[in-house]
Simulated assay, not measured.
Amino acid sequence: MGWLNNLLNKVAGVPPTDWTLLDDLTDPGIGIAGKPVSPDECYVELYVESLRLEKARRFATTFDGVIYSFASLAREGANRVEKASVTKPQNLATMDANNLGRVITVSKRIMGAIPWRGDPFGLELGLFSVKSGNLITPLIDYVTKVSDKAGLSIATKVDAFMPLITEGLDMIAGQKNDTEIELAIDTDLSLDRSRLCALVAKKKGTLASTDLTIDPQDRKLLQNGEPLQAAYCVFSIRSSNRNPDWGSIPALQDSYADFTNAINSGKHKEAEEALAAFNRRVITSPDLIPSDKNRLKEKARADLQDAFPGGGQAVRPAERERFKGRRLIDLNLYDD
């Protein structure tokens, strides 16, 4: 899939990756698990909820905790969408041995809303510690910034950034004495509902999901009611009926700008043609589910009707002023 296997091959002293994955933990009342995941009816998002580090004790100085993810999902009318993310949350920066063993609550979105088209959900997830200082710290910062610029949810923007992300990660992995794998997984999941999962640094078969629960307060992992004494990462795959980044889809932004410019020209026929072009962009967008596409087209049609009431050929002065500088996000897709 992505880069994780390359890291595992490069970093010295990495044990076999037979860690335990528990992919259907009981929701303790935080309202994440159990929501339907149906093709073309929802989006899915990936969050890291909490984690516990353990292996970085060998570093004599401070270290940074880094979360890497790579997701592969079916995409409408195109190849599978691949989303890479590298993040160094503030509470994982410049840690020392005194921080090891405590639970870090993150609850950070590491993959934005992607339309769900059907199984499988391909996932690489890695948590690793990197010694702070020298060249490696700015290198981590660089890879994190590139990942952020790639965007969390706009699939069309990631391709140009993927080589930069993987090359930077390769350089980090090359620092064998300064990089420590905490946890990693490369798997395909079948989804029919949102779920809470945990990757635990214990051998497969040594843990039962019935023995583990999630603390609703800080989302730490409990074994028989007590904090689990092992490295772990609790993460969630969430179902959502909204794409919070819909207004940032580049192709739709550009097409909507052409539409508003046509309205400001005052020519009804040109505005109609521009609306038709916008609708085509919406229909073919891989970043929206059908219900959102229909809603967006209706709102754009309402703009045309407001600008040319009764099918008239002249834009009302008030409407001409309103459409100056109007952006896609101003369509207010979800009526917030």
Score class of each variant (00 low, 15 high):
residue 2 G to Y: 03
residue 2 G to L: 07
residue 8 L to I: 08
residue 12 A to C: 01
residue 19 W to T: 09
residue 22 L to Y: 05
residue 26 T to K: 15
residue 26 T to H: 12
residue 31 G to L: 06
residue 32 I to M: 07
residue 35 K to V: 07
residue 46 L to K: 02
residue 53 L to D: 04
residue 56 A to V: 00
residue 57 R to H: 04
residue 61 T to R: 14
residue 65 G to W: 00
residue 67 I to V: 15
residue 69 S to R: 00
residue 74 A to Q: 14
residue 77 G to H: 07
residue 82 E to N: 08
residue 86 V to C: 07
residue 87 T to S: 11
residue 88 K to F: 00
residue 88 K to H: 08
residue 95 M to A: 14
residue 96 D to Y: 02
residue 98 N to F: 09
residue 101 G to W: 04
residue 102 R to F: 12
residue 104 I to K: 14
residue 104 I to P: 01
residue 128 F to N: 03
residue 132 S to P: 06
residue 132 S to D: 14
residue 133 G to Q: 09
residue 140 I to P: 05
residue 147 S to F: 00
residue 148 D to E: 13
residue 148 D to F: 00
residue 156 T to L: 03
residue 156 T to N: 02
residue 159 D to L: 04
residue 161 F to V: 02
residue 169 L to P: 05
residue 171 M to R: 09
residue 175 Q to D: 04
residue 179 T to Y: 05
residue 185 I to S: 15
residue 187 T to V: 15
residue 189 L to F: 11
residue 194 S to Y: 10
residue 197 C to V: 00
residue 203 K to D: 13
residue 211 D to E: 15
residue 216 P to I: 08
residue 241 N to F: 12
residue 253 Q to S: 13
residue 254 D to N: 15
residue 265 S to F: 08
residue 269 K to W: 08
residue 276 A to P: 03
residue 284 T to F: 11
residue 291 S to P: 02
residue 292 D to F: 08
residue 301 R to C: 00
residue 303 D to S: 13
residue 313 Q to Y: 06
residue 318 A to K: 13
residue 323 F to I: 01
residue 326 R to S: 05
